[in-house]
Design a protein around this nucleic acid. Structure first.
Length: 499
RNA sequence: GGUCCCUUCGUCUAUCGGUUAGGACGCCAGAUUUUCAAUCUGGAGAGAGGGGUUCGACUCCCCUAGGGACUGCCA
């Protein structure tokens, strides 16, 4: 089901006349139309490739993705690279790397906006022919003066060429939209509610630059229409643009899509997110050890909620998400809560996967690792993952198992190794050597049995044992620590210290 | 300057005219204890201010204050 326009008779006539004129040579909107979806909903994420994928952009993408999944619709991606000067290949790559890491992939081929320039120009020709656009020869200097004057008078800027009938076509000029001077435009926003703008306040924005290149405000409208986008979910910095864009839709005789302007994400201090707040790029969050599902959960909870639900999976998020429930106010990034949410997902994650992530993180850190690091981490991860908030913490928690014999003992441990304790630990060593299976539950029993047989509490040998096994590194319960080390390494470390 | 948006514990949020204003993170205290965490229990902690409307406002309206966006031949 496509969102076809329900244009007025005159607009329709103009449109068809124009399409006949350009006929087969120009790209038409039909080839971009996505296939019908069961719900008819089509959302999109339209990043501008001038930098990395910002955390705020990631959340915008997530909301679009969630809404499309929730409604059984489609999620599309379009790269807004009409500004050829500022768009870079590296940025495109970085954005997709971030999107892929988060698991947000387009349901159709990605559209690069700059390739659609002919179609954008086509739409402008149409508006020009219909008297809904005009050529403007204002110079940069004239514009500056006019802008200052308009600002001082507290009104929108108007070009003197708006009603001109002549002009030298051989001289470079822009083409502006000819907006209505009276009446008002209402953006019925799904998040903010109806927002009314008086048309007189809306300036005539440039559609085509002097070099003939389309501008953002023109390109979004044409592409969203051609791609069959039904719901435009984006940052609320575009709310003002929505009114101008609505006018363009109407001038073209097209249906205006539903708009949902979501508030931006701010830094912990409430100011716009910037470098001094730490990470901004999703790639940085990945490097800090956050995992995609944790990130998705946290991001979904920023500016949206479903009752008291805090920790949830994708399936739940998809079934619960609705744009109507998005919060109106901007949210602040809270690292502590991100850590907590991520920790919840980390403990549910598959051990083999965590092992690989931890190994990669350790290698990336440039740590010198034993040859059997993977095996050591694999044994340790199940015992320590409940205490880790990030992959980086997980690596820290594995550190004790990655040490190689003989371990350097802390001074504290050496002091604890009195003759009595050494003898006791030697007896313990013999007990441990004979346990049937070197797993945590069995070892726990063995330790308890040993303490009882010695008629002492753990305090009499636990700290020293720990020191010997870990060299002072943080580690889980002694039974788990030994299980992670396995029999040979555990006994070996004991022998090194008790010799 | 103009237009527009926003405002519940420190933070994220619930509430959609009637609640002791709920939950989560964080924080504090206690429990546990063989380190660091984790875990468990308890606690402190909020409707920006002022007017209305109403029998009754966090909830609806207005004003003020504060924050933000836009005001580009950037997106």
């Amino acid at each position: 089901m496509l969102r076809r326009a329900a244009p007025s008779r005159s607009a329709l006539a103009l449109r068809f006349a124009f399409l006949d004129a350009i006929s087969a040579s120009s790209p038409t909107d039909s080839k971009l139309m996505s296939n019908p979806t069961s719900s008819g909903v089509v959302t999109r994420f339209a990043p501008s490739p001038t930098g990395f994928l910002h955390i705020g952009g990631a959340r915008t993408a997530l909301f679009n993705w969630l809404y499309a999944r929730h409604t059984g619709g489609k999620f599309l991606i379009r790269v807004e690279d009409t500004d050829r000067e500022r768009s870079t290949e590296a940025a495109v790559a970085a954005i997709f790397e971030g999107l892929n890491w988060l698991g947000l992939e387009s349901d159709a081929e990605v559209v690069f906006q700059h390739t659609r320039a002919p179609r954008h120009v086509e739409a402008v020709q149409e508006m020009l022919a219909a008297g809904r656009a005009y050529r403007c020869w204002m110079t940069v200097e004239e514009l500056e003066v006019a802008r200052e004057k308009a600002r001082a008078e507290g009104r929108a800027i108007r070009s003197p060429w708006r009603d001109a009938t002549d002009g030298d076509l051989s001289v470079p000029h822009v083409i502006r939209f000819k907006g209505p001077l009276d009446g008002e435009t209402v953006v019925d926003d799904m998040v903010k509610g109806p927002v009314t703008f008086r048309n007189i306040e809306l300036d005539d924005l440039v559609l085509l630059r002097a070099d003939g290149a389309p501008t953002y405000n023109l390109a979004v409208v044409v592409d969203d229409h051609d791609m069959g986008v039904t719901h435009v979910i984006r940052g609320d910095d575009h709310l003002n643009n929505a009114a101008r864009q609505s006018l363009i839709y109407k001038a073209l005789g097209w249906d205006v899509p539903a708009f949902a302007h979501i508030p931006l994400i701010h830094g912990p201090d409430g100011a716009k997110l910037s470098k001094r707040h730490g990470a901004q790029a999703v790639g940085e969050f990945a490097d800090l050890g956050y995992i995609p599902e944790g990130m998705r959960n946290y991001l979904a909870r920023l500016g949206w909620g479903h009752g008291d639900d805090e920790v949830f999976n994708d399936e739940q998020a998809i079934s619960w998400f609705d744009v109507a429930d998005v919060v109106k106010a901007p949210a602040r990034l809270d690292w502590a809560k991100l850590n907590h949410i991520n920790a919840q997902h980390l403990r549910k994650a598959d051990d083999a996967r965590l092992t690989e992530l931890a190994l990669a993180a350790a290698e990336k850190r440039g740590e010198s690792l034993p040859a059997d690091a993977r095996e050591r981490i694999a044994r340790t991860v199940p015992e320590v993952k409940e205490g880790a908030k990030t992959i980086l913490e997980l690596v820290d928690h594995c550190a004790f198992a990655l040490k190689t014999r003989p371990l350097a003992l802390e001074e504290k441990t050496q002091k604890q190794l009195t003759e009595e304790t050494v003898e006791r630990l030697k007896r313990l060593r013999e007990q441990l050597a004979s346990v049937a299976s070197f797993d945590a539950p069995t070892l726990e029993t063995a330790l308890k049995t040993f303490a009882e047989s010695e008629d002492v509490g753990f305090g009499k040998f636990g700290p020293a044992l720990r020191g010997i096994l870990t060299g002072g590194a943080p580690a889980p319960d002694l039974n788990k620590t030994m299980a992670a080390l396995a029999r040979e390494e555990s006994l070996g470390r004991l022998d090194d210290a008790l010799a």
